[in-house]
Amino acid sequence: MTDEVSTQSRPLPVPPRSYGAVNWVGLWTLYKREVGRFLKVWMQTLFAPVITTLLFMTVFKLAFGSRGQLTGDFEGLDYNSFLAPGLVVMSMLQNAFQNTSSSLTIAKVQGSQVDFLMPPLSPLELTLGFIFGAVTRGIMVGVIGGLAIHLTGLADLSIVNIVPVIWFSLMATIFLAALGAVGGIWAEKFDHLAAITNFVIVPLTFLSGTFYDIKVLVEPFQTAAHFDPIFYLIDGFRAGFIGVSNSHLAVGYIASGIFTFLACVWVWWLFRTGYKLKA
């Protein structure tokens, strides 16, 4: 009788939590972690890039003044109006890259990658959480930087076509966030990450037509510029503000979509295999 009573009063075991096709709670938690990480140091992650963008605009405006009139595809366009969208999207690219790369590299250096590997998160959910946390930072930097340029009168950033602005903003931040994740997973220390930034990301960004019309390049460099994926991101984003571009926008939509998709698949594969993340 005593055994029967003790058995009946014993609490039933709690069944394990079950998830559907997507662990929305875990994905949202990882996303909030990534966003909260850069918001805690907003002076460094949001304010500093805007100051850098404004300094670039100020220096070029002082150097060229009202003399900067472009030719070719952008004939008659003021150079400051040409430059401003390029600087905005460049800051978005760099900050999206820095967010994922620094997050994953810090986790590996500190040995805290178990914090996101142990929870029930699939490789796809890890990919989405890290990438869209970086996208949020990139978009915020772009919006604040664009408003700062426009409100200070350094250049007119009136939107001509909203569709390419939205599309190429998303593709630019997703693509560089994915590359940042790849770099963060591959790098074993911050020196490796700095090498990727200095020898891959910065050259591709600066040689993609941010500061100049690629038509001024001599062959074969002008043709080679069309193989730079960042060229389509900057050229398409700029077209949303000035209405003209070096390449056909349809080509830019397709190229940027393909490059971004492949980069995201690469990140997913790295998380799936546990490359340099699992001992």
Score class of each variant (00 low, 15 high):
Val200Trp: 09
Trp266Phe: 04
Gln222Val: 10
Phe206Ser: 11
Ile234Pro: 01
Ala250Leu: 10
Tyr212Thr: 09
Phe261Arg: 01
Thr223Ser: 13
Ile234Glu: 02
His248Trp: 13
Ile234Asn: 08
Phe206Trp: 12
Tyr212His: 12
Glu219Thr: 08
Cys264Val: 15
Trp266Arg: 00
His248Cys: 11
Leu233Asn: 05
Thr210Gln: 10
Phe206Val: 12
Asp213His: 11
Gly240Met: 07
Ile234Cys: 08
Val251Lys: 02
Lys215Phe: 14
Gly240Phe: 05
Thr223Trp: 05
Asp235Met: 01
Asp213Asn: 14
Gly243Arg: 02
Phe206Lys: 11
Phe237His: 03
Ala250Ser: 11
Phe261Asp: 00
Gly257Glu: 02
Tyr212Asp: 04
Asn246Val: 11
Ser208Thr: 01
Thr260Gly: 12
Gly243Ser: 00
Phe206His: 12
Lys215Ser: 15
Ala263His: 08
Pro229Asn: 13
Leu207Asp: 04
Ala224Trp: 11
Leu233Met: 13
Phe206Pro: 07
Asp235Gln: 06
Pro203Ala: 03
Pro220Trp: 08
Leu233Gln: 09
Phe199Val: 09
Val244Ile: 10
Gly257Val: 02
Gly236Asp: 06
Tyr212Phe: 15
Gly243Lys: 07
Ser245Val: 08
Thr210Gly: 01
Arg238Ile: 07
His248Pro: 14
Ile234Gly: 04
Asp213Cys: 05
Ala263Asp: 03
Ile230Leu: 14
Leu249Ile: 14
Val218Gly: 12
Ser256Ile: 01
His226Gly: 04
Val218Tyr: 14
Phe221Glu: 02
Ser247Tyr: 13
Ser245Trp: 04
Ala225Gln: 12
Ile242Arg: 10
Thr223Gly: 06
Asp228Gln: 12
Ser247Val: 05
Leu262Met: 09
Asn246Pro: 05
Gly209Trp: 00
Tyr232His: 15
Phe241Cys: 06
Pro220Tyr: 11
Val202Ile: 15
Leu204Lys: 00
